[in-house]
Write a protein that binds this DNA or RNA. Structure first.
Lengths: 229, 229
DNA sequence: CGCCAGAATTGATCCAGAGCAAGGAACCGG
DNA sequence: CCGGTTCCTTGCTCTGGATCAATTCTGGCG
């Protein structure tokens, strides 16, 4: 399979292009290329000008703000895209992107996508919807960071990892605890202590990156800010 | 002037509709209405379903997250719009909207706008651009809140109020200090102390809501995190 | 003018979470 | 099986900014 048909294949599976006719998709793929990067590789850096829309075929990408303390804005997994927003702005990237695992990317140049907005109404709507979604998540995150304490954020995060349902649930952290901590906006030390504490309270059980939610009701309560009994 | 021609008139002045032909604009205005609200009035509350895209003709609207401590996400002034993102999501509003002054709003229902995306390519692009812009601002704000201390945020904010340039600049706070404090993510007490401190250092001079930036170089330095000499 | 409510200042205290330091524990290639 | 990373945990201390508690200032309005 050539690089381009591979790209077309991957792009076709994205929600964004779900309704785009194959002919147009092939056209888009002509301006796309796949890129394989190793764990730890820097995909893009803050300040650079974006190379285009980036989709993750497999692997995991970390988008983060780097100050003296790193804040992870989003973990981008298979089937997800990033850098949509900068496509339409003449601004440099505001975040760093680093591969957390061996990752296959598809990079699509901006120009053909801009054209696609005019010719494929489904795409325009899809893009709008996905950006709205992203925006909403960002606002929710903002709220979590500014309104809730570290314990509440962690409880909410853990709860969000498991599909709604009652009874024990087993979840797996999508990245190292250090990265999760930066995602939650705390230090790894604080995360470690909080996990420990929740373990002691019987809220969760932890084995490495695998966590069992032992009491989802109390976990949800903790996310709402209730202090332990 | 009727309510509708007024609405059309106001909408026509927005960047978003800058390139929309008058005929379409009139069509949109058929589904829009103006709304005059008094200072302090609640325009929309978190959890409600959005009534549509809202534009501010004159006045000032505060968008904020309400927990036990309020966080102001954005102050929306004349010529600006809000609630675009929720148009495309079937979700309740994530924020509260309150008028900070007597304000004239134009409320445009979602349906005709969705139709306009298909018929007016300029509009689709404009919408995408404005959402991207909003997104970018949100990320910058996020960065400020998570990466910088209160003093740096204030310095950056003050600096951003004045157009770039050297020498003394006079700016005016767009709202009460209490609101500005919530915008910056600090308490009014902390804001008061910081302003005082910057005054003592000769960085700024303050009279009520009017602030003179006395040393933009050092102000910019403070925004970057340099401690006072 | 004098009164009152909301806004701002100022001082004193408190605390969640950061920072620092020092081990453990799992994982890797050789 | 060893030696080196990289990741995680745990104890101690420190601090930015919140919180609590008075005043003081301000701008309407009768």
């Amino acid at each position: 399979m050539t690089n381009r048909t591979l790209a077309a294949d991957i792009l076709g599976k994205l929600p964004l292009f779900r309704h785009t006719p194959p002919a147009r998709l092939a056209e888009i793929a002509r301006h796309a290329r796949t890129e394989h990067v190793l764990r730890g590789a820097v995909i893009a850096q803050r300040g650079e000008k974006p190379r285009g829309l980036i989709a993750v075929a497999y692997g995991l990408v970390k988008l983060s703000l780097r100050g003296e303390t790193e804040k992870v804005l989003r973990l981008v997994g298979p089937g997800e895209t990033f850098a949509e927003a900068v496509l339409f702005l003449d601004k440099p990237l505001p975040v760093d992107a680093v591969a957390l695992a061996d990752t296959l990317l598809v990079v699509v140049k901006a120009a053909p996508l801009l054209a696609l907005i005019d010719t494929d109404r489904g795409f325009a709507r899809g893009l709008l919807a996905s950006m709205s979604q992203r925006m909403h998540e960002l606002v929710m995150d903002f709220e979590a960071t500014t309104q809730h304490g570290a314990r509440e954020r962690l409880a909410g995060y853990l709860d969000s990892l498991a599909p709604a349902g009652i009874g024990d649930a087993r979840v797996q952290l999508p990245a190292s605890k250090t990265v999760i901590a930066a995602r939650l906006g705390v230090t790894k030390e604080t995360l470690s202590r909080l996990l420990r504490q929740m373990g002691d309270e019987g809220l969760i059980a932890m084995a490495k990156r695998d966590i069992t939610l032992r009491d989802r009701a109390r976990l949800a309560a903790a996310a709402r800010g209730d202090r332990p009994a």
